[in-house]
Computed example of a mutant assay.
Amino acid sequence: MLIGIPKEIKNHEYRVGMVPASVRELIENNHEVIIETNAGIGIGFSDQDYIAAGASIEDTAAAIFAKADMIVKVKEPLAVERAMLRQGQILFTYLHLAPDLPQTLDLIDSKAICIAYETVIDTQGRLPLLAPMSEVAGRMAIQAGAQTLEKSNQGSGMLLGGVPGVAPAKVVIIGGGMVGNNAAQMAVGLGADVTILDRNIDTLRSLNIQFGSKVKVIYSTLDVLEAEVLAADLVIGAVLIPGAAAPKLVTRDHISKMKPGSAIVDVAIDQGGCFETSHATTHQDPTYIVDEVVHYCVANMPGAVAKTSTFALNNATLPYIIKLANLGYKKALENDQGLLEGLNVINGKLTCKSVAEAHNLPYVTAKTALAI
């Protein structure tokens, strides 16, 4: 199979779909890899590094899309990239379709086979291709939140961990999954006063065992959510419903009652965000103010630490890339139910129920679509 790696073109996105070591693995499996010139330059890999691994270099993304049987990316394809997809071509990347109707319709029209990293599951029902970026984003959320609280960034001027004689900032994390857990680790390490809210009792028990008295873990009712958010200096939105739009748990009314200079970091922004006042921002212009509350809603947070993120993502995606290349998409999907869960669009049909519900579009099951 011919695998193509275009350069990412989203604002301040420096990650790349495959590092040279991953390319070498594909070459050893008797596949060909073509990569757009300078695709890896943002994380320190030259074209020569890819050539040494066995890849060929193409000057343009158009050449990559025109030739490749499978396109491997990091972020969702932008409109100019979607226009280059063709029927029968495999697209393997993050898609986040639930909050993005234009992308959904374009992928349907392309008749490509579109497999989303974020909805692939493993044998234990976990999200193995979302997990590494959730780890990165959770840890980054605290770094970003700490900076957002600084007075120069229009925050309240609080140091997250305080100092002897001065109380630390109160950090509230909504959601105790992978993002929330990693955010808590960082916040605890910096000495913050940390509370995690979740509605899964087993998750709360696990967090309590992990953190002990260093973190307060509380079952999230409407009353608890409101009280904790209004008392917080920094709120991290770490809510995930796989494939679906994030629920708007923190309302505009809540935001209006928060302390002036407090901050929110909405890690769920890729799925539409879990704050009613959230809208996607970029690393170039990451924050905005609503009711004196600083909002950080960067949609590709891990892109800021591109080297760490690319290697972490490649570690997770490489086995699936090899499987798709070795077996072909149909046999690979038939043989791996978890990979089949990642199929969002195929041959003009939407196959992800949560995306269909978000956009009120018709869909068929992935199994049915694969059999047609």
Rank of each mutant, 00 (worst) to 15 (best):
D109N: 15
E76D: 11
D69I: 06
S22A: 15
G17L: 04
D59T: 06
M84C: 12
S22L: 10
Q124L: 10
A66Y: 03
Y50P: 05
R24C: 06
R15A: 13
I115T: 07
I35W: 03
I43Q: 02
A61L: 09
Y94P: 13
I51D: 07
C114T: 02
C114M: 06
S134C: 02
F45Y: 14
A98D: 04
T93L: 14
G54W: 03
V72C: 04
E58G: 02
K73Q: 04
A131S: 11
K67T: 04
V16P: 14
Q103E: 13
R139W: 01
Q89M: 14
N30D: 14
G40H: 00
V33Q: 04
A68F: 00
A98F: 05
E25A: 15
A21T: 10
A83I: 01
T60L: 10
P77R: 00
I57M: 03
I108V: 11
D109Y: 11
L107T: 03
D109S: 15
G125V: 03
D49P: 05
T119W: 02
G42S: 02
R15K: 13
P77G: 04
M140C: 10
I115Y: 08
K75R: 06
E13R: 12
I57G: 00
S46E: 01
M133C: 09
N38G: 03
T37K: 08
K67P: 08
S110P: 11
I34M: 03
Y14I: 12
N38T: 02
I27L: 01
L107S: 07
K67E: 13
Q89L: 13
L91P: 12
G54D: 01
F65M: 10
I51R: 05
I108F: 09
E135S: 06
E28M: 06
F92V: 15
T60D: 10
A116R: 03
I57N: 00
S46V: 03
T123C: 07
A131Y: 03
L107F: 09
F45E: 01
L97R: 14
A116C: 10
T104V: 08
G40S: 02
A98C: 07
Y117H: 05
L129E: 11
E32S: 01
G44E: 01
R24I: 01
P99Q: 14
S22D: 15
V19N: 10
A68K: 00
E13M: 12
A62Y: 01
A62G: 07
V120K: 09
I57V: 07
D100P: 12
P132C: 12
I43F: 00
I142E: 02
Q103K: 04
G17A: 13
L105N: 14
G42F: 00
I64S: 03
M70H: 04
V33N: 00
R86L: 08
E25P: 09
I71W: 00
L127S: 08
I113D: 11
I57Y: 01
F92Q: 15
V74K: 09
F92R: 13
A112R: 07
